[in-house]
Design a protein around this nucleic acid. Structure first.
Length: 214
DNA sequence: CAGATCACCTGCTTGC
DNA sequence: TGCAAGCAGGTGATCT
């Protein structure tokens, strides 16, 4: 093994034979300690130990080559406001669906999209191309701030997620809309709503995130 | 081509 | 208590 990198939700492992690209899906885990279980689908022998790949739901993938990675959009913590805003203008779809689209921007998942939209006061059904410059700027800032804070808290552990050492994250304690249906909005007290957008559970405050005009 | 929906799989929670 | 239905952090095939 010569290198390990991340791009979006993919882990790229450089080997002398080429690149091994992994995606953990929803329940995949790569562990440096532990024993094989019925859900262990890969065992990698390292010079100094073993790497176990577990994935109960089997939504994860391990493949050769970077074909998938090359199609990804920019990294959310690297893309500038100007480029982000330009890309938004070209898309007519609903902002929630667009932020989840990995070819638009890489690495955002359902939890973080809901939290980012809440922070920026944007309704999940808002049409991307119709966001004002000011709202696009707010969205960009919320994206950077939310991810930075989540990384500091080592991610969101709701049921399965742990890091490579088996440790849970803490960011779920700071979720303001995700998983809080019916609870009072931290800004205005209105009960948080949950609907389905782009096939995903979508949590938002109906007052702080105004529905766009049709 | 862009956008929307559904299928994929297992396990845990909910409600009767 | 038991069991079926519903739901879950993601994507990709397949429609329109």
């Amino acid at each position: 093994m010569e290198s390990v990198a991340r791009r979006g939700k993919f882990i790229v492992i450089g080997l002398d034979k080429g690149e091994l690209v992994m995606h953990l899906g929803m329940t995949g885990k790569l562990l440096t300690a532990g024993v094989e279980t019925t859900h262990t689908y890969g065992v990698f022998t390292l010079d100094d130990g073993v790497l176990l790949y577990e994935d109960p739901r089997q939504f994860g993938r391990i493949e050769w080559g970077d074909a998938r990675v090359r199609r990804l959009g920019p990294e959310p913590l690297l893309v500038g406001l100007a480029e982000f805003s330009e890309r938004l203008k070209k898309r007519k779809t609903r902002i929630k669906a667009l932020l989840l689209n990995q070819t638009f921007i890489a690495g955002l998942g359902n939890i973080y999209v809901d939290e980012i939209l809440f922070s920026s006061g944007i309704h999940p059904l808002a049409q991307a191309s119709r966001l004002s410059e000011a709202r696009a700027a707010k969205l960009h800032q919320a994206m950077v701030d939310t991810l930075t804070l989540a990384i500091e808290h080592r991610g969101s552990s709701i049921s399965d997620y742990v890091d490579a050492d088996g440790n849970r994250g803490n960011f779920q304690m700071l979720h303001r809309v995700y998983g809080r249906e019916g609870e009072a909005c931290v800004n205005c007290g209105t009960p948080i709503k949950k609907v389905v957008v782009a096939g995903r559970g979508t949590h938002y405050c109906p007052v702080c995130q105004r529905r766009p005009r049709a």
